[in-house]
Design a protein around this nucleic acid. Sequence first.
RNA 1: GCUCCCGUCGUCCAGUGGUCUAGGACAUCGCCCUUUCAAGGCGGAAACCGGGGUUCAAACCCCCGCGGGAGCGCCA
Length: 480
Amino acid sequence: MVRVRFAPSPTGFLHVGGARTALFNYLFAKNQNGVFVLRIEDTDLERSTKESERSLLRTMKWLGLDWDEGPDVGGPKGPYRQSERLDIYRRMAYALVEKDKAYEAYVLPEELEAIRGKMLENKESPHYSYEIISQYDTPERRQEFARKGWSPVVYFKMPQKEYVLNDRIKGRVAFKEGTIGDFVIFRSTGVPIYNFAVVVDDALMEITHVIRGDDHLSNTLRQLALYEAYQMPLPEFAHVSMILGPDGSRLSKRHGATAVENFREMGYLPSSLLNYLALLGWSHAQDNEICALEEMIRTFSLERVSSNPAIFDAEKLRWVNGMYIRQLTPEAMLENAVPFITEAGFMGPENVDANKKWLLEAMKAIQNEIHQLDEIPGQLSPFFTDPIPTTETLRSLEDDGLSPAFKLLYERFDTINAWEITDIVSTIKAVVKETKTNPKSFYHMLRVVLTARDTGPELVYIVHLLGRNKVLNRLGRLGV
RNA sequence: GCUCCCGUCGUCCAGUGGUCUAGGACAUCGCCCUUUCAAGGCGGAAACCGGGGUUCAAACCCCCGCGGGAGCGCCA
């Protein structure tokens, strides 16, 4: 049984890189009929917050990446929050001490600094070893620690040998002997260090495949040594490359929106965000770029995950979102649009039902015009505001000789029986023909008069949606 | 500095020794459709980081450069 996990630390919003890692884990699990575990890595007491954890779960749910085991739903291998597993880590750390594979250290941080500085001065790699650290392990020191109520930290004895990792994405990765020295696994505060906690958790939670960002690749050396020390079976590793900003450096806030939450606010659909993120590193065997979650699950494989870093292309994401918006039924589009419509103040949520018919037509009218849901208020505003024509508009109406046509159009609209799309179209066409007006400039002017802009939905939709009263009102004040 | 990863159009991805005069997508340019913009359709321009090998044959394999990224904390 395949078991994978996504293990974010609750120190802020879920960003797109994390979302992609989560997605790859999810896709792999579902493709293999496996289990997707969510684990909260909150051993950094300083930075972890409950609020971040809540927002993380909320965002994951919004994306539709549901987990089988996790802090909220529980599961057989819990708890799923590292802060609730502290006793386990202590036990595991001291098991290593007993086997002489780790040791307590009674060094002070400033002493460590001094050692480090000296090694750097001698142009040595700043690696700690038992020989160095144990010098401080004297009876006097132990007494001093005891007296002051300090706990020793636990260092892991890093075996000096070469380690080889067979990564599912990177291939064979060899870490030379002597790359790193001994390292801390357990803090004096009773909280474990990341590299230690992951190994303990992944092993105990019986994770079979570790799919994560390649910023963890170098860490894997430590983890390999720990698995070996415990004689525990190694999971498969798959290191996905980083997402970079347009300047080629690691994607961060200074590149603009990076939190999934930001994209939700801008009117991105979860499906398009997921689809785009998958495209960033993974490729469909048949080149189907636009494919929904189901299709991705069906066709996902680690073999088709690329090993090079990818620059985040907001333009393409936008295009993908446009594709998904256009696939929406008017009903689905309206459902997604409601928050944006109410927030713009066009109508309260309680009025949506009463205006449903009109809103659905409006959705159809603007569906091809937008790439993000937050463009909806702009598209709809001519229906809810009253754009006054500028003197410039009035002058060009005169100059282009369009006045007679507009006069006739007013009369016809005033007397037309039914206000239906077909009637509106035939009326407009007849007016243009009868007055021998240049269609192009007439249509453009009509748009400007009705909406005060020169882009937007199809004109007939605008006329129809505006309704006879508003149309006559806006035409009537032209003074033609 | 040390260690590790990566290097195909501006960007993402395909390509796993011959089928590559290198393919697709976004963006870009042009044309068509059309009442403008958009959407849609058609077409164009655009890339194998450099140098050495290996081989009958290299974008694909090896080495060396160069460039980019990551990690080297009682952060994760």
